[in-house]
Write a protein that binds this DNA or RNA. Structure first.
Lengths: 156, 156
DNA sequence: TATTGTTATACTCTATAACTATA
DNA sequence: TATAGTTATAGAGTATAACAATA
């Protein structure tokens, strides 16, 4: 296909489609925005071989050293069975360790290793970078308001 | 386990976990909010055996009668191959139809059937219901601002 | 040579039931 | 009898390569 026609065709292909009611559907807008932000996380974290969910898990272990897998899973809305393989991989990579408790030997206390602590510091910087690129679209008051709205939406 | 201890244990299990930096991560808050809203869509649409992605597809066909599968897929950020089975199911259920084009017989023009039109009307009402429950957390100006921010985040 | 719709396929994410060892 | 962690497994959702028909 000649380049002129090619361009014409591309334009038609990318011509605006009317999204109709979706344009004003909070649920749809939220979905698309979340997907876009996730993609940025994915790309930025790729060089550390860390995915968004893994980042959130390391962050919670960092802030709550010694917590159990059940509490960790509940806090992030992850099912316990799906956490096992993730923690296994962290241990293989030397990022976290499971410590046995003397008073309840069913439970494991989770901790970051020094290597894990070093990594999460780098990841936080990337997270903050993404956050800043979004935050610049708003002023400080708006950002606080929107974060609160998002928290309210999440909890009920 | 006695009921008193049971309660004690539940409290400990549900005790607040510090999410650390995630508490101020727009990406994380967006993710959790989107998941929560999706769950509401999922539950509300269940009685029509329609999932959120299916709702968005029907909506775009409604607003752009005769568009092709490629344009439909591009507009919603869906890969073409993943659209095929969805449209097949719509046809089996008598919600949409593919019409052959005389000038380009590779392409199919998509249309809602009368049954599809009736259904999408009901779905829009449910979508509006969810939307209203979220919108009441803000005033009108905030909602418009927030939607604009979400659109900006989505487009880059 | 390029594009539309399609098939096949693989990978991730998520969800549930059931097991084990402890309590 | 109940709980923590685990295993196995099944279902969505999503991604890519490659094909046939058509342009």
């Amino acid at each position: 296909m000649p380049s002129a026609r090619r361009k014409e065709k591309d334009a038609r292909l990318e011509a605006p489609v009317d999204l109709g009611r979706l344009n004003d559907s909070f649920g749809y807008l939220l979905r698309r925005a979340q997907t876009a932000v996730f993609q940025r996380f994915f790309d930025l974290f790729a060089k550390f071989d860390i995915r968004p969910a893994q980042y959130s898990i390391l962050t919670v272990i960092e802030s709550n050293p010694g917590l159990s897998q059940t509490r960790l899973a509940n806090s992030l809305g992850i099912k316990k069975p799906n956490l096992v393989a993730i923690i296994d991989i962290f241990e293989e990579r030397g990022l976290t360790r499971r410590e046995s408790l003397e008073n309840d030997r069913r439970s494991h206390a989770l901790y970051l290793t020094p290597k894990g602590i070093a990594l999460i510091g780098q990841l936080h910087r990337l997270d903050a970078e993404i956050d800043q690129s979004i935050s610049q679209l708003m002023n400080g008051d708006e950002r606080r308001r929107f974060c609160n709205v998002l928290r309210q939406v999440t909890s009920g």
